[in-house]
Write a protein that binds this DNA or RNA. Structure first.
Lengths: 151, 151
DNA sequence: AGTGAAAAAGCATGCCC
DNA sequence: GGGCATGCTTTTTCACT
């Protein structure tokens, strides 16, 4: 599917604030409300837009610590199995399987360091993990807004 | 600010789909529309809800490759400066400053490997970076939905 | 804090260019 | 693909418990 500049503009606006009204978006991209709606509907149908979500301040909910744990495991370990175990933990924010070393990167959000320790132990215990290394996040910046308009 | 179970339920519902209507949420949490609205307004005012955004399939937009680059730099390097340079790149998804080794972790999204190479060079060039190590993501899982209700 | 109902705003649809 | 006019849904506000 081909996206033109207007589609990218609309995506950028929704990325900034998904609750903008159609008329707000329409005036910013100089189109009618109906035209904008048609474009957004199309973006959803084609799967470019996966969904809408709310951005939450996790620290305010008591999940104050973020960490990344690098996992290394033996060649016989089933990668899918690792992904399954880690994703089953509610503390897991994301899991990335990696080409090379380490084999996987798990992004965790925990209450405190004791909790982190506990979760790392849990991962180590449930698999043939040959090694872990955990990076504790001091500060995080994340692009919640705006995305480059074209590849 | 204190959140009760209903607040967490509402957050979970919005996290799943931020475009649910108030009446939909109201019926699921067994409250009136007005009561739900007041709670959501409060969550926004207190900063628990930071905003609303759209989830995009980046691969469909041509940003098919994800990578993490670990940065190490000399003790004299200003961390804020690194963060500033990396966040200025549109390819940067997030930047984490780390306690220990490495000093920072940059999450990138790029078109292809040549593009990745280019961005890593850019980071290395603009700072007193003593070393980088890049992890190329083969597959990613991320929790787009549901969050543990209480810490 | 919660409720219910009325007013205002925004959305969805059909039909036109 | 874009625009306009219409009825319908959702949000917002307000008086009251």
């Amino acid at each position: 599917m081909e996206l033109d500049g207007t589609d990218h503009e609309i995506l950028a606006l929704l990325r900034e604030d998904a609750r903008r009204t159609l008329s707000d978006i329409a005036s910013r991209v100089s189109l009618s409300v109906a035209a904008v709606k048609r474009r957004i509907d199309r973006l959803q149908e084609t799967g470019v837009i996966l969904g809408y979500t709310v951005q939450v301040d996790h620290a305010k909910l008591g999940w104050g610590i973020e960490a990344f744990t690098e996992l290394r495991f033996s060649g016989t370990t089933n990668v899918a199995e690792i992904v399954q175990t880690t994703t089953a933990m509610p503390e897991t924010q994301a899991v990335f399987t990696i080409a090379g070393d380490p084999d996987a990167l798990v992004w965790l959000r925990v209450r405190d360091l004791a909790h982190l320790q506990d979760r790392i132990d849990e991962i180590r215990r449930s698999h043939r993990v040959t090694g872990t290394k955990t990076l504790i996040v001091l500060d995080a910046w994340s692009r919640e807004r705006q995305w480059p308009s074209a590849p």
